[in-house]
């Protein structure tokens, strides 16, 4: 029973990590209607910048402080040069162009930093474990991720519903002309929003750095997971992204933790290990297909 609770917690934590990435992606997707496959590249850029700064200075926090605005600048530059020409295009063009951007960024990072993975560790005061349940020490850094993820969720909720910027953003999404009439340059508004999205991606990369490998291509595998999250939650919905993240995190974790054991009840152990592991790899895709068949526009469709 204790193990089950711990695994659920692990699942929630994985979900929150995914949410950090999904939040920026769904923001851009919901407001500018832009599918940005290169969001994973910004995640990678953020992690690499943080790892270099932390490597040079020995301070994770300094790395974080540098990586966030630096990645936001990279993101805004990409928006200015390429992406703003794609807002009016269909999703296919966006997928293709940002696929090109992935190739570009992966290679650029490899040229700048070399082919080997980089080292990144969290601050020393987060390196230990905390005993959250009797007999279950939990890594402090993972707890920090959970806290940060919740903070980001609250911040985004506040930003989009309570601030003038959020109001403009929402207005810009549904009616560009009206916002322009208010004397606001929508193009710069979008650049700004994209910068925020890029910063969130960098935050996800920086927080993932100490637990995952900081390597070229780190953005792709997690990007697919993130898209699964967004599609399950409903495109453009922050709330959907949050629920979707937790759902995917928990299903993936519990699948890996318990499926092989469960199958052993009625299969040969060797077969059960193999089949269980395969099913666990597919679990989130099965979840996504099931959700979409049940609700073709995700759990929380953004535009009712």
């Amino acid at each position: 029973m204790l193990l089950l609770i711990e695994q659920v917690l692990n699942g929630l934590q994985l979900g929150v990590t995914l949410f950090l990435l999904a939040a920026g992606l769904t923001l851009v997707l919901g407001i500018m209607n832009l599918v940005n496959l290169a969001h994973g590249s910004l995640y990678m850029v953020g992690a690499f910048i943080c790892a270099s700064v932390a490597g040079a200075t020995g301070s994770f926090l300094l790395g974080l402080v540098v990586a966030l605005p630096a990645t936001a600048l990279v993101g805004m530059a990409v928006e200015l040069v390429v992406l703003r020409r794609l807002y009016a295009r269909d999703h296919l063009d966006q997928v293709l162009a940002t696929f090109g951007l992935i190739l570009f960024f992966n290679e650029l990072v490899r040229i700048l930093w070399g082919p080997r993975a980089l080292f990144l560790d969290g601050p020393s005061w987060l390196s230990g474990t905390v005993e959250i349940l009797p007999g279950i020490p939990y890594p402090a850094f993972r707890l920090a991720i959970i806290v940060l993820g919740l903070a980001v969720a609250l911040f985004l909720a506040w930003l989009t519903t309570r601030t003038r910027l959020g109001m403009l953003i929402r207005a810009g999404a549904s009616n560009r002309e009206m916002v322009s009439a208010l004397g606001v340059d929508v193009r710069w508004l979008y650049t700004l929003v994209f910068g925020i999205g890029a910063m969130l991606a960098a935050l996800a990369g920086v927080m993932a750095g100490p637990i995952y490998a900081v390597e070229v291509g780190m953005g792709e595998s997690i990007l697919i997971l993130t898209f699964v999250v967004i599609v399950i939650g409903g495109i453009g919905s922050i709330r959907g992204a949050f629920v979707g993240s937790l759902l995917v995190g928990v299903v993936d974790t519990l699948g890996r933790a318990f499926l092989p054991g469960l199958l052993k009840l009625f299969l040969m152990p060797a077969t059960a290990d193999g089949v269980g592991a395969s099913l666990a790899s597919m679990a989130i895709y099965i979840l996504m297909a099931a959700v979409l068949i049940w609700r073709p526009r995700g759990l929380f469709p953004a535009h009712a």
Binding site: Q7, Q13, R142, A213, L254, S281
Partner: peptide
């Protein structure tokens, strides 16, 4: 047996 390319090993 874990998933090929898996990143999170908490479970």
């Amino acid at each position: 047996y874990t998933k090929l390319g898996q990143k999170d090993y908490a479970a």
